[in-house]
Design a protein around this nucleic acid. Structure first.
Lengths: 219, 219
DNA sequence: GGCGTCAACCTGACGATGTCAACCTGATGG
DNA sequence: CCATCAGGTTGACATCGTCAGGTTGACGCC
Protein backbone atom coordinates (compact mmCIF):
# COMPACT_ATOMS: atom_id res chain seq x y z
CA UNK A 1 0.00 0.00 0.00
CA UNK A 2 2.94 2.30 0.49
CA UNK A 3 3.68 4.58 -2.39
CA UNK A 4 6.95 6.25 -3.21
CA UNK A 5 6.68 9.84 -4.15
CA UNK A 6 7.05 10.54 -7.86
CA UNK A 7 10.13 12.42 -8.93
CA UNK A 8 9.68 15.97 -10.20
CA UNK A 9 8.32 15.91 -13.73
CA UNK A 10 6.43 12.67 -13.24
CA UNK A 11 3.51 14.06 -11.31
CA UNK A 12 1.12 12.90 -14.00
CA UNK A 13 1.68 9.33 -12.88
CA UNK A 14 -0.51 9.90 -9.84
CA UNK A 15 -3.26 11.17 -12.08
CA UNK A 16 -3.33 7.90 -13.97
CA UNK A 17 -3.28 5.87 -10.77
CA UNK A 18 -6.16 7.86 -9.34
CA UNK A 19 -8.15 7.42 -12.53
CA UNK A 20 -7.53 3.68 -12.50
CA UNK A 21 -8.50 3.33 -8.84
CA UNK A 22 -11.63 5.40 -9.31
CA UNK A 23 -12.64 3.44 -12.39
CA UNK A 24 -12.16 0.16 -10.56
CA UNK A 25 -14.22 1.37 -7.62
CA UNK A 26 -16.94 2.59 -9.93
CA UNK A 27 -17.17 -0.63 -11.89
CA UNK A 28 -16.89 -2.89 -8.84
CA UNK A 29 -19.61 -1.18 -6.83
CA UNK A 30 -21.70 -0.23 -9.85
CA UNK A 31 -22.64 3.04 -8.23
CA UNK A 32 -21.06 6.46 -8.10
CA UNK A 33 -22.32 6.95 -4.55
CA UNK A 34 -19.70 4.46 -3.36
CA UNK A 35 -17.01 6.49 -5.08
CA UNK A 36 -15.54 8.35 -2.10
CA UNK A 37 -12.52 10.55 -2.41
CA UNK A 38 -11.16 8.83 0.66
CA UNK A 39 -11.70 5.41 -0.85
CA UNK A 40 -10.02 6.44 -4.09
CA UNK A 41 -7.08 7.95 -2.25
CA UNK A 42 -6.79 4.96 0.04
CA UNK A 43 -6.72 2.54 -2.86
CA UNK A 44 -4.12 4.66 -4.58
CA UNK A 45 -2.03 4.70 -1.40
CA UNK A 46 -2.15 8.44 -1.09
CA UNK A 47 -3.76 10.98 1.21
CA UNK A 48 -7.24 12.24 0.43
CA UNK A 49 -6.51 15.86 -0.51
CA UNK A 50 -3.91 14.70 -3.00
CA UNK A 51 -6.71 14.01 -5.40
CA UNK A 52 -7.10 17.76 -5.70
CA UNK A 53 -3.65 17.97 -7.22
CA UNK A 54 -5.08 16.61 -10.45
CA UNK A 55 -8.86 17.08 -10.28
CA UNK A 56 -10.73 20.23 -9.39
CA UNK A 57 -13.42 18.40 -7.43
CA UNK A 58 -15.20 15.10 -7.14
CA UNK A 59 -17.42 15.70 -10.15
CA UNK A 60 -14.44 16.41 -12.36
CA UNK A 61 -12.88 13.13 -11.30
CA UNK A 62 -16.04 11.16 -12.01
CA UNK A 63 -16.46 12.84 -15.35
CA UNK A 64 -12.87 12.15 -16.33
CA UNK A 65 -13.23 8.51 -15.31
CA UNK A 66 -16.40 8.01 -17.32
CA UNK A 67 -15.12 9.86 -20.36
CA UNK A 68 -12.37 7.27 -20.73
CA UNK A 69 -14.94 4.75 -21.96
CA UNK A 70 -15.92 7.04 -24.83
CA UNK A 71 -12.66 6.30 -26.57
CA UNK A 72 -13.91 2.78 -26.99
CA UNK A 73 -17.21 4.01 -28.39
CA UNK A 74 -15.38 5.98 -31.03
CA UNK A 75 -13.30 2.95 -31.95
CA UNK A 76 -16.32 0.67 -32.15
CA UNK A 77 -18.24 3.20 -34.22
CA UNK A 78 -15.48 3.61 -36.73
CA UNK A 79 -14.99 -0.12 -37.00
CA UNK A 80 -18.72 -0.74 -37.39
CA UNK A 81 -19.29 1.76 -40.18
CA UNK A 82 -16.16 0.86 -42.13
CA UNK A 83 -16.49 -1.34 -45.21
CA UNK A 84 -20.28 -1.37 -45.06
CA UNK A 85 -21.83 -1.22 -48.49
CA UNK A 86 -25.04 0.68 -47.92
CA UNK A 87 -25.32 3.67 -45.55
CA UNK A 88 -28.64 2.36 -44.27
CA UNK A 89 -26.90 -0.82 -43.16
CA UNK A 90 -24.19 1.30 -41.60
CA UNK A 91 -26.83 3.23 -39.66
CA UNK A 92 -28.21 -0.03 -38.35
CA UNK A 93 -24.80 -1.20 -37.23
CA UNK A 94 -24.27 2.16 -35.65
CA UNK A 95 -27.38 1.73 -33.53
CA UNK A 96 -26.48 -1.79 -32.46
CA UNK A 97 -22.97 -0.74 -31.50
CA UNK A 98 -24.33 2.21 -29.57
CA UNK A 99 -26.67 0.15 -27.41
CA UNK A 100 -24.07 -2.56 -26.93
CA UNK A 101 -21.54 0.00 -25.78
CA UNK A 102 -23.98 1.38 -23.23
CA UNK A 103 -24.67 -2.10 -21.86
CA UNK A 104 -20.96 -2.84 -21.63
CA UNK A 105 -20.33 0.35 -19.63
CA UNK A 106 -23.54 0.87 -17.69
CA UNK A 107 -22.15 3.06 -14.93
CA UNK A 108 -20.28 5.35 -17.25
CA UNK A 109 -23.26 5.64 -19.56
CA UNK A 110 -25.60 6.42 -16.70
CA UNK A 111 -23.34 9.03 -15.18
CA UNK A 112 -22.64 10.90 -18.40
CA UNK A 113 -25.95 10.46 -20.20
CA UNK A 114 -28.65 10.11 -17.58
CA UNK A 115 -27.96 13.14 -15.43
CA UNK A 116 -28.19 16.84 -16.03
CA UNK A 117 -25.24 18.81 -17.29
CA UNK A 118 -21.97 17.70 -18.88
CA UNK A 119 -23.00 17.29 -22.52
CA UNK A 120 -19.65 16.63 -24.14
CA UNK A 121 -20.20 12.88 -24.11
CA UNK A 122 -23.70 13.35 -25.46
CA UNK A 123 -22.39 15.57 -28.21
CA UNK A 124 -19.97 12.85 -29.27
CA UNK A 125 -22.77 10.28 -29.40
CA UNK A 126 -24.97 12.63 -31.35
CA UNK A 127 -22.16 13.35 -33.77
CA UNK A 128 -21.79 9.70 -34.72
CA UNK A 129 -25.52 9.33 -35.33
CA UNK A 130 -25.73 12.53 -37.34
CA UNK A 131 -22.92 11.32 -39.58
CA UNK A 132 -24.60 7.99 -40.21
CA UNK A 133 -27.96 9.64 -40.84
CA UNK A 134 -26.44 12.24 -43.16
CA UNK A 135 -25.00 9.48 -45.32
CA UNK A 136 -28.47 7.98 -45.57
CA UNK A 137 -29.97 11.32 -46.56
CA UNK A 138 -27.26 11.81 -49.15
CA UNK A 139 -28.02 8.36 -50.54
CA UNK A 140 -31.70 9.21 -50.76
CA UNK A 141 -32.83 6.52 -48.35
CA UNK A 142 -33.94 9.06 -45.77
CA UNK A 143 -35.47 12.47 -46.44
CA UNK A 144 -35.39 15.65 -44.45
CA UNK A 145 -33.10 17.48 -42.04
CA UNK A 146 -30.33 15.10 -40.91
CA UNK A 147 -30.13 16.70 -37.47
CA UNK A 148 -33.84 16.32 -36.83
CA UNK A 149 -33.85 12.74 -38.12
CA UNK A 150 -30.79 11.93 -36.03
CA UNK A 151 -32.46 13.25 -32.90
CA UNK A 152 -35.26 10.79 -33.51
CA UNK A 153 -33.15 7.71 -34.00
CA UNK A 154 -30.82 8.77 -31.21
CA UNK A 155 -33.82 9.09 -28.90
CA UNK A 156 -34.83 5.53 -29.62
CA UNK A 157 -31.34 4.10 -29.25
CA UNK A 158 -30.73 6.01 -26.06
CA UNK A 159 -34.08 4.98 -24.68
CA UNK A 160 -33.37 1.34 -25.33
CA UNK A 161 -29.96 1.53 -23.67
CA UNK A 162 -31.20 3.73 -20.88
CA UNK A 163 -34.09 1.50 -19.92
CA UNK A 164 -32.01 -1.64 -20.08
CA UNK A 165 -29.56 -0.05 -17.68
CA UNK A 166 -31.92 1.58 -15.22
CA UNK A 167 -34.57 -1.16 -15.16
CA UNK A 168 -32.63 -4.43 -15.31
CA UNK A 169 -35.37 -6.30 -13.47
CA UNK A 170 -37.84 -5.91 -16.32
CA UNK A 171 -39.09 -8.75 -18.53
CA UNK A 172 -36.53 -8.10 -21.23
CA UNK A 173 -36.34 -10.85 -23.84
CA UNK A 174 -33.65 -13.36 -22.99
CA UNK A 175 -32.22 -12.79 -26.45
CA UNK A 176 -31.03 -9.28 -25.78
CA UNK A 177 -29.15 -8.87 -29.03
CA UNK A 178 -32.26 -9.95 -30.86
CA UNK A 179 -34.30 -7.34 -29.07
CA UNK A 180 -31.76 -4.66 -29.84
CA UNK A 181 -31.83 -5.78 -33.43
CA UNK A 182 -35.60 -5.55 -33.56
CA UNK A 183 -35.56 -2.10 -32.03
CA UNK A 184 -32.93 -0.86 -34.44
CA UNK A 185 -34.86 -2.22 -37.43
CA UNK A 186 -38.05 -0.71 -36.09
CA UNK A 187 -36.42 2.70 -35.83
CA UNK A 188 -34.83 2.42 -39.24
CA UNK A 189 -38.04 1.43 -41.00
CA UNK A 190 -40.04 3.96 -39.04
CA UNK A 191 -37.71 6.81 -39.88
CA UNK A 192 -37.55 5.77 -43.52
CA UNK A 193 -41.31 5.58 -43.81
CA UNK A 194 -42.20 8.63 -41.75
CA UNK A 195 -39.57 10.75 -43.50
CA UNK A 196 -41.31 10.33 -46.86
CA UNK A 197 -44.88 10.75 -45.71
CA UNK A 198 -46.59 14.11 -45.29
CA UNK A 199 -47.43 14.94 -41.71
CA UNK A 200 -51.10 14.88 -42.49
CA UNK A 201 -51.13 11.27 -43.67
CA UNK A 202 -53.68 9.41 -41.57
CA UNK A 203 -51.89 6.74 -39.56
CA UNK A 204 -54.55 4.09 -39.94
CA UNK A 205 -54.61 4.50 -43.71
CA UNK A 206 -50.84 4.14 -43.87
CA UNK A 207 -50.91 1.01 -41.76
CA UNK A 208 -53.58 -0.46 -44.00
CA UNK A 209 -51.16 -0.30 -46.90
CA UNK A 210 -48.43 -2.13 -45.01
CA UNK A 211 -50.03 -5.57 -45.27
CA UNK A 212 -49.76 -5.58 -49.04
CA UNK A 213 -46.16 -4.44 -48.81
CA UNK A 214 -45.29 -7.06 -46.22
CA UNK A 215 -46.83 -9.81 -48.34
CA UNK A 216 -44.04 -9.27 -50.85
CA UNK A 217 -41.49 -10.34 -48.20
CA UNK A 218 -43.47 -13.20 -46.74
CA UNK A 219 -41.33 -15.88 -48.39
CA UNK B 1 -42.39 29.62 10.77
CA UNK B 2 -43.60 28.36 14.13
CA UNK B 3 -45.67 25.26 14.01
CA UNK B 4 -48.18 24.05 16.57
CA UNK B 5 -47.99 20.43 17.43
CA UNK B 6 -50.73 18.30 15.91
CA UNK B 7 -53.25 16.81 18.24
CA UNK B 8 -53.19 13.04 18.74
CA UNK B 9 -54.72 11.29 15.76
CA UNK B 10 -53.65 13.98 13.31
CA UNK B 11 -50.02 12.99 12.99
CA UNK B 12 -50.47 12.40 9.28
CA UNK B 13 -50.79 16.13 8.78
CA UNK B 14 -47.04 16.55 9.23
CA UNK B 15 -46.45 13.93 6.56
CA UNK B 16 -48.38 15.97 4.04
CA UNK B 17 -46.59 19.17 5.01
CA UNK B 18 -43.20 17.49 4.63
CA UNK B 19 -44.17 16.10 1.25
CA UNK B 20 -45.33 19.52 0.09
CA UNK B 21 -42.17 21.24 1.31
CA UNK B 22 -39.94 18.62 -0.27
CA UNK B 23 -41.81 18.81 -3.55
CA UNK B 24 -41.52 22.58 -3.60
CA UNK B 25 -37.80 22.41 -2.89
CA UNK B 26 -37.31 19.80 -5.58
CA UNK B 27 -39.18 21.74 -8.23
CA UNK B 28 -37.66 25.09 -7.28
CA UNK B 29 -34.06 23.96 -7.35
CA UNK B 30 -34.55 21.39 -10.10
CA UNK B 31 -32.11 19.04 -8.44
CA UNK B 32 -32.42 16.41 -5.75
CA UNK B 33 -28.96 17.29 -4.44
CA UNK B 34 -30.42 20.49 -3.00
CA UNK B 35 -33.08 18.49 -1.21
CA UNK B 36 -31.60 18.45 2.30
CA UNK B 37 -33.44 16.96 5.22
CA UNK B 38 -32.57 20.08 7.16
CA UNK B 39 -33.96 22.31 4.43
CA UNK B 40 -37.17 20.31 4.26
CA UNK B 41 -37.57 20.34 8.01
CA UNK B 42 -36.79 24.03 8.21
CA UNK B 43 -39.35 24.88 5.57
CA UNK B 44 -41.93 22.78 7.35
CA UNK B 45 -41.13 24.54 10.63
CA UNK B 46 -40.07 21.36 12.33
CA UNK B 47 -36.84 19.84 13.61
CA UNK B 48 -34.74 17.71 11.27
CA UNK B 49 -35.16 14.26 12.82
CA UNK B 50 -38.93 14.68 12.76
CA UNK B 51 -38.81 13.69 9.11
CA UNK B 52 -37.99 10.20 10.31
CA UNK B 53 -41.37 10.00 11.99
CA UNK B 54 -42.95 9.52 8.56
CA UNK B 55 -40.15 8.45 6.19
CA UNK B 56 -37.62 5.70 6.71
CA UNK B 57 -34.78 7.67 5.15
CA UNK B 58 -34.02 10.37 2.63
CA UNK B 59 -34.50 8.10 -0.36
CA UNK B 60 -37.95 7.07 0.82
CA UNK B 61 -38.93 10.71 1.10
CA UNK B 62 -37.66 11.53 -2.38
CA UNK B 63 -39.39 8.52 -3.83
CA UNK B 64 -42.66 9.40 -2.12
CA UNK B 65 -42.43 12.96 -3.39
CA UNK B 66 -41.79 11.93 -6.98
CA UNK B 67 -44.43 9.22 -6.98
CA UNK B 68 -47.07 11.87 -6.37
CA UNK B 69 -46.71 13.05 -9.94
CA UNK B 70 -47.60 9.62 -11.25
CA UNK B 71 -51.21 10.14 -10.24
CA UNK B 72 -51.33 12.82 -12.87
CA UNK B 73 -49.83 10.48 -15.45
CA UNK B 74 -52.56 7.98 -14.80
CA UNK B 75 -55.22 10.64 -15.15
CA UNK B 76 -53.75 11.97 -18.38
CA UNK B 77 -53.40 8.47 -19.80
CA UNK B 78 -56.98 7.56 -19.07
CA UNK B 79 -58.23 10.81 -20.51
CA UNK B 80 -56.10 10.47 -23.63
CA UNK B 81 -57.19 6.96 -24.51
CA UNK B 82 -60.86 7.51 -23.79
CA UNK B 83 -63.24 8.01 -26.71
CA UNK B 84 -60.57 7.38 -29.32
CA UNK B 85 -61.89 5.44 -32.25
CA UNK B 86 -58.94 3.42 -33.38
CA UNK B 87 -56.49 1.73 -30.93
CA UNK B 88 -53.58 2.81 -33.14
CA UNK B 89 -54.61 6.42 -32.66
CA UNK B 90 -54.93 5.76 -28.96
CA UNK B 91 -51.39 4.40 -28.89
CA UNK B 92 -50.17 7.56 -30.55
CA UNK B 93 -51.95 9.75 -28.02
CA UNK B 94 -50.52 7.59 -25.31
CA UNK B 95 -46.98 8.29 -26.50
CA UNK B 96 -47.53 12.02 -26.79
CA UNK B 97 -49.05 12.21 -23.32
CA UNK B 98 -46.18 10.18 -21.94
CA UNK B 99 -43.46 12.48 -23.25
CA UNK B 100 -45.43 15.57 -22.32
CA UNK B 101 -45.83 14.31 -18.80
CA UNK B 102 -42.11 13.73 -18.49
CA UNK B 103 -41.37 17.26 -19.71
CA UNK B 104 -43.88 18.72 -17.30
CA UNK B 105 -42.27 16.90 -14.34
CA UNK B 106 -38.60 16.67 -15.30
CA UNK B 107 -37.17 16.22 -11.83
CA UNK B 108 -39.62 13.54 -10.81
CA UNK B 109 -39.16 11.72 -14.09
CA UNK B 110 -35.40 11.82 -13.80
CA UNK B 111 -35.35 10.63 -10.21
CA UNK B 112 -37.72 7.73 -10.72
CA UNK B 113 -36.82 6.68 -14.25
CA UNK B 114 -33.20 7.60 -14.83
CA UNK B 115 -31.55 6.00 -11.82
CA UNK B 116 -31.11 2.44 -10.71
CA UNK B 117 -33.61 0.77 -8.45
CA UNK B 118 -37.17 1.65 -7.52
CA UNK B 119 -39.12 0.25 -10.48
CA UNK B 120 -42.67 0.78 -9.32
CA UNK B 121 -43.02 3.96 -11.32
CA UNK B 122 -41.51 2.29 -14.35
CA UNK B 123 -43.91 -0.61 -13.99
CA UNK B 124 -46.81 1.80 -14.06
CA UNK B 125 -45.53 3.46 -17.23
CA UNK B 126 -44.93 0.10 -18.85
CA UNK B 127 -48.41 -1.02 -17.90
CA UNK B 128 -50.06 1.85 -19.77
CA UNK B 129 -48.02 1.18 -22.89
CA UNK B 130 -48.67 -2.55 -22.79
CA UNK B 131 -52.39 -1.90 -22.56
CA UNK B 132 -52.35 0.42 -25.55
CA UNK B 133 -50.19 -1.97 -27.56
CA UNK B 134 -52.33 -4.96 -26.66
CA UNK B 135 -55.37 -3.20 -28.05
CA UNK B 136 -53.50 -2.66 -31.30
CA UNK B 137 -52.51 -6.32 -31.45
CA UNK B 138 -56.09 -7.34 -30.77
CA UNK B 139 -57.24 -5.07 -33.58
CA UNK B 140 -54.72 -6.64 -35.95
CA UNK B 141 -52.78 -3.44 -36.56
CA UNK B 142 -49.69 -4.77 -34.78
CA UNK B 143 -48.45 -8.34 -34.77
CA UNK B 144 -46.46 -10.26 -32.20
CA UNK B 145 -45.99 -10.38 -28.46
CA UNK B 146 -47.55 -7.25 -26.90
CA UNK B 147 -44.96 -7.12 -24.14
CA UNK B 148 -42.04 -7.24 -26.56
CA UNK B 149 -43.65 -4.66 -28.84
CA UNK B 150 -44.41 -2.45 -25.87
CA UNK B 151 -40.82 -2.58 -24.72
CA UNK B 152 -39.81 -1.23 -28.12
CA UNK B 153 -42.22 1.69 -28.24
CA UNK B 154 -41.60 2.43 -24.57
CA UNK B 155 -37.87 2.57 -25.25
CA UNK B 156 -38.39 5.17 -27.91
CA UNK B 157 -40.79 7.28 -25.87
CA UNK B 158 -38.58 7.11 -22.81
CA UNK B 159 -35.53 7.95 -24.87
CA UNK B 160 -37.20 11.02 -26.30
CA UNK B 161 -38.30 12.23 -22.88
CA UNK B 162 -35.06 11.28 -21.25
CA UNK B 163 -32.85 13.09 -23.72
CA UNK B 164 -35.01 16.19 -23.71
CA UNK B 165 -34.66 16.31 -19.94
CA UNK B 166 -31.00 15.49 -19.52
CA UNK B 167 -29.70 17.42 -22.54
CA UNK B 168 -31.76 20.58 -22.69
CA UNK B 169 -28.97 22.49 -24.42
CA UNK B 170 -29.21 20.42 -27.57
CA UNK B 171 -30.48 21.73 -30.92
CA UNK B 172 -34.01 20.48 -30.36
CA UNK B 173 -36.51 21.81 -32.86
CA UNK B 174 -38.24 24.90 -31.58
CA UNK B 175 -41.56 23.20 -32.26
CA UNK B 176 -41.19 20.63 -29.50
CA UNK B 177 -44.68 19.23 -29.82
CA UNK B 178 -44.09 18.77 -33.52
CA UNK B 179 -40.91 16.85 -32.83
CA UNK B 180 -42.65 14.65 -30.29
CA UNK B 181 -45.36 14.07 -32.85
CA UNK B 182 -42.83 13.06 -35.48
CA UNK B 183 -41.10 10.70 -33.09
CA UNK B 184 -44.37 9.09 -32.05
CA UNK B 185 -45.42 8.60 -35.66
CA UNK B 186 -41.99 7.23 -36.52
CA UNK B 187 -42.25 4.67 -33.74
CA UNK B 188 -45.80 3.74 -34.66
CA UNK B 189 -45.04 3.23 -38.34
CA UNK B 190 -41.81 1.46 -37.56
CA UNK B 191 -43.42 -0.96 -35.15
CA UNK B 192 -46.29 -1.61 -37.52
CA UNK B 193 -43.97 -2.30 -40.42
CA UNK B 194 -41.32 -4.27 -38.56
CA UNK B 195 -43.93 -6.37 -36.77
CA UNK B 196 -45.20 -7.78 -40.06
CA UNK B 197 -41.87 -8.34 -41.75
CA UNK B 198 -39.76 -11.47 -41.27
CA UNK B 199 -36.50 -10.80 -39.50
CA UNK B 200 -34.57 -11.81 -42.56
CA UNK B 201 -36.09 -9.15 -44.80
CA UNK B 202 -33.23 -7.10 -46.20
CA UNK B 203 -33.55 -3.53 -45.00
CA UNK B 204 -32.52 -1.88 -48.21
CA UNK B 205 -35.05 -3.89 -50.20
CA UNK B 206 -37.80 -2.91 -47.80
CA UNK B 207 -36.89 0.74 -48.03
CA UNK B 208 -36.93 0.52 -51.80
CA UNK B 209 -40.62 -0.39 -51.65
CA UNK B 210 -41.49 2.57 -49.47
CA UNK B 211 -41.26 5.17 -52.23
CA UNK B 212 -44.09 3.59 -54.15
CA UNK B 213 -46.16 3.40 -51.00
CA UNK B 214 -45.43 7.00 -50.07
CA UNK B 215 -46.42 8.18 -53.53
CA UNK B 216 -49.98 7.18 -52.76
CA UNK B 217 -50.08 9.76 -49.92
CA UNK B 218 -48.24 12.51 -51.74
CA UNK B 219 -51.34 14.59 -52.34
C1' DG C 1 29.48 20.45 -1.42
C1' DG C 2 26.24 23.37 0.71
C1' DC C 3 21.96 25.75 -0.41
C1' DG C 4 17.77 27.57 -2.02
C1' DT C 5 13.74 26.31 -4.61
C1' DC C 6 10.10 24.07 -6.17
C1' DA C 7 7.26 20.01 -7.25
C1' DA C 8 4.92 16.50 -4.81
C1' DC C 9 2.62 15.26 -1.21
C1' DC C 10 0.76 15.21 4.01
C1' DT C 11 -1.67 16.93 8.43
C1' DG C 12 -5.27 18.85 10.56
C1' DA C 13 -9.29 21.02 10.44
C1' DC C 14 -14.03 23.02 9.02
C1' DG C 15 -18.80 22.94 7.76
C1' DA C 16 -22.48 20.24 6.00
C1' DT C 17 -25.08 16.12 5.80
C1' DG C 18 -27.79 11.60 7.01
C1' DT C 19 -28.99 9.27 10.98
C1' DC C 20 -29.70 7.67 15.79
C1' DA C 21 -30.53 7.48 20.97
C1' DA C 22 -32.50 9.75 24.48
C1' DC C 23 -35.35 13.17 26.29
C1' DC C 24 -39.42 16.30 26.66
C1' DT C 25 -44.54 17.77 26.52
C1' DG C 26 -49.12 18.28 26.41
C1' DA C 27 -53.72 16.18 25.39
C1' DT C 28 -56.60 12.33 26.88
C1' DG C 29 -58.86 8.32 28.96
C1' DG C 30 -59.69 6.20 33.49
C1' DC D 1 -55.59 14.02 39.20
C1' DC D 2 -52.47 11.06 37.23
C1' DA D 3 -50.34 7.70 34.06
C1' DT D 4 -49.79 7.00 29.18
C1' DC D 5 -48.62 7.72 24.82
C1' DA D 6 -48.56 10.22 20.34
C1' DG D 7 -45.92 13.88 18.64
C1' DG D 8 -42.37 15.91 18.65
C1' DT D 9 -37.14 18.04 20.31
C1' DT D 10 -32.04 18.08 21.74
C1' DG D 11 -27.67 16.73 21.19
C1' DA D 12 -24.51 13.97 19.29
C1' DC D 13 -21.90 10.83 15.89
C1' DA D 14 -19.69 9.30 11.68
C1' DT D 15 -18.82 10.47 7.15
C1' DC D 16 -18.32 13.31 3.42
C1' DG D 17 -16.11 17.17 0.23
C1' DT D 18 -12.90 20.68 0.66
C1' DC D 19 -9.25 23.94 2.11
C1' DA D 20 -5.04 26.29 4.48
C1' DG D 21 -0.77 25.44 5.70
C1' DG D 22 3.20 22.48 6.66
C1' DT D 23 6.77 18.82 5.21
C1' DT D 24 10.07 16.29 2.31
C1' DG D 25 13.17 15.15 -0.97
C1' DA D 26 15.26 15.84 -5.73
C1' DC D 27 17.69 19.09 -8.63
C1' DG D 28 20.10 23.22 -10.41
C1' DC D 29 23.53 26.63 -9.12
C1' DC D 30 27.53 28.88 -7.21
Amino acid sequence: MKRVRANPGHGERLREEILAAAEALLVETGSEAALTLRAVAGRTGVSTPSVYLHFADKDSLIEAVCLRAWNELERRMREATRDVGHPFMALGRCGRVYVRFALDHPVQYRVLMMRQGSGSAAEACFGYIVAAVSACVAAGVLHGDPQALALGVWSAAHGCASLLISQPSFPWPEDLDGFIDDTVRMVGFGTALASRLPRRAVSTEVVAELDALAARFAG
